[in-house]
Design a protein around this nucleic acid. Sequence first.
DNA 1: CGGCGAATTGATTTTTTTCAAGCTGGGTGG
DNA 2: CCACCCAGCTTGAAAAAAATCAATTCGCCG
Lengths: 266, 266
Amino acid sequence: MSPTIELPRDLGRALDAAETVDRRRACLRCPGRLRTICAPVPVATIERLAQLKLPPRRLPAGQSIYAEGEPCNAYFTVLLGWVALTTVQGGQAGVVLDYALPGDFFGLQPNPETPRLHSAIAVTDVTVCPLPRQGAEVLLQTDPAVAAHLAHLVALHEARAHAHLVNSTGRGARERVAHLLIELFFRQTHHLPHQPDELVELPLTLTLMGETIGLTAAHLSRTLRRLREEGIIRFRRGHLHICDPDALLAASGVDLRPLADETMEA
Amino acid sequence: MSPTIELPRDLGRALDAAETVDRRRACLRCPGRLRTICAPVPVATIERLAQLKLPPRRLPAGQSIYAEGEPCNAYFTVLLGWVALTTVQGGQAGVVLDYALPGDFFGLQPNPETPRLHSAIAVTDVTVCPLPRQGAEVLLQTDPAVAAHLAHLVALHEARAHAHLVNSTGRGARERVAHLLIELFFRQTHHLPHQPDELVELPLTLTLMGETIGLTAAHLSRTLRRLREEGIIRFRRGHLHICDPDALLAASGVDLRPLADETMEA
DNA sequence: CGGCGAATTGATTTTTTTCAAGCTGGGTGG
DNA sequence: CCACCCAGCTTGAAAAAAATCAATTCGCCG
């Protein structure tokens, strides 16, 4: 029942133990610790998790981590870089459902036996920590703390999807863009922008951002220009500069303060 | 640690036992059994769940089950009727995030200590089975099967939100409407429409449906008229008549077959 | 110095909203 | 039993928002 891990068979017991310690250390040092599926794992159990997981996997920008229709072999934690969860319907324009940032967990399915419902694409160069499905499911069925935490974690993803839905339904382009920028700012800094001239990474193309909020790249470009001309933001080369935070918050058209902690916090 | 339930203190042990049996029977007979949080509960444990839950609550159409901003006291299973999960942003038009139909579980939060992120409104007269939060959380922390199942159940809700997002982003009114009708058909019958002249309940106002897919009631009315004039559907007084299933599926603009089982199944 | 994907911009068309005015049908009170 | 009431639906005309299409331009990389 215990899932196998890829280890050279001829290593002695000593090295095996060392390997275990290494893995355990890696998990304890992991940026995702305390934030994803690992959060409720007591130090005593972390060894078990460390055994389950595969070594980190690095992928270049643009590569698919998994694609719609594929079987579901593993769940993932992002260690480094940005991942887009997205659908592509029959060669047409896709829709970005969510982004997974460092520390975020993604890839859990309603039914693990079933093909992937969406694709996960590396937006930047990415390092992910894969957790094989079988092992993860056993862990869930055995450790109630992990399972309970995971349920709430997925509820958070659901809440984010709902916020996304509210944002891209029945609101103007300006509002949508402002809201998206604030969300992505928040998810990196863990606070709303308040000081003038805050700077943050934003390694997305206009096309991708457009697919996130349901606008064409052309219209998005115009909307961003307007915001720039009003001295609210500047966006260039993977970086977002929020010149006037209050104006941006106002432009989003919602009071985000109460929701921020709950919905965007990873 | 075991959660208390409201019982007259002066009842003898015999009646108490009878009450327990009643609750247990009610849970075993429940339409939500096998479909919601109760699904993985073995008959042995169902008694425990039966002790946790409050007696069913009936609400007239239009009533709020909980509202955005309120504290989260309980989670719910729908026994009868339709519930809309919705946001209302500052007096403006709201957005319907999802519907909960008989057998559906709703109300779980990312952080249970936190105010509600959305409202739940009874669309029709409704009967729900409330599960007090405290007890539910204890159950989750104790019973890994329930917790693991719940995680996947919430993942299903997330997937449905994603499908909703795809549907209402960057697609025409006709496609959105067709997709919504099919989804609501499926969630009641558990199959896609295929025979001509299938009939199903649809107790929603145009305003509500519009808020679900991001259209005004006016435009929705026009879109429905077009579908009616083409002999595809008829919709009146709470009932949907799918005259030409294939045309409706075609109008939705997506191949729903592979997704249906996973995304819509409650 | 090209080459190329991404961003910008303009002109035009399409889609959807908005606003406002009737319509309808089921429920209520006289 | 009927008149009326009212929420919800329908319809029309005009305005607004966004998509589309088609060039350019920009900036990075080899």
